[in-house]
């Protein structure tokens, strides 16, 4: 890998991957011992999770000597703030949040209402002008999707 400046929180990300890999390894091990043969249902998962662990280590080694993402000695609070800034700049955070709310609303309000709300709210969040136009576009899009999926293809919508 070319030496480049690490992204903010990249080491943390690799650590999370490492933990994930270890969990996979342990879980695979537990399956493997129930059928310890070459064709057992734990064999290939075991190999795969070993690959995961090894690759995490390689990735860590590769970051040696790369300039760190955070400045040295920065306070934990500031690091956290910078990390959030990097992960969810601008409108990304709100949109992800809307998606989560939308997912919940889907099961409560049904597809039509929640989709309309989602489209409208996210469009005006992204561009505060033209509220009426955004609403119109949301409504037309929704109508098109409903017609196409529900009435023509009889694909059920949530």
């Amino acid at each position: 890998m070319k030496k480049r400046k690490l992204e903010k929180g990249e080491l943390g990300f690799i650590t999370v991957l490492g933990v994930f890999s270890l969990i996979c390894l342990i879980a695979s091990m537990r399956i493997f011992v129930t059928a310890p043969t070459l064709n057992g249902e734990g064999t290939v998962p075991l190999i795969t999770s070993c690959v995961l662990v090894v690759m995490t280590l390689v990735m860590l080694l590769e970051t040696r000597g790369c300039p760190r993402g955070f400045e040295k000695g920065a306070a934990l609070g500031q690091k956290a703030r910078e990390l959030l800034q990097f992960l969810f700049p601008g409108m990304v955070g709100p949109i992800i949040l809307y998606c989560l709310v939308y997912a919940v609303l889907l099961s409560i309000l049904g597809f039509a209402v929640s989709t309309l709300i989602f489209l409208f709210v996210s469009m005006i969040t992204l561009n505060r002008e033209h509220k009426v136009r955004s609403f119109l576009i949301s409504a037309i899009t929704l109508a098109c999707i409903m017609i196409l999926f529900q009435f023509i293809f009889k694909v059920q919508l949530p």
Partner: peptide, 9 residues
């Protein structure tokens, strides 16, 4: 700002 919400939907 219009396309991305539609893609998500």
């Amino acid at each position: 700002h219009i396309l991305m919400p539609i893609i998500i939907i």
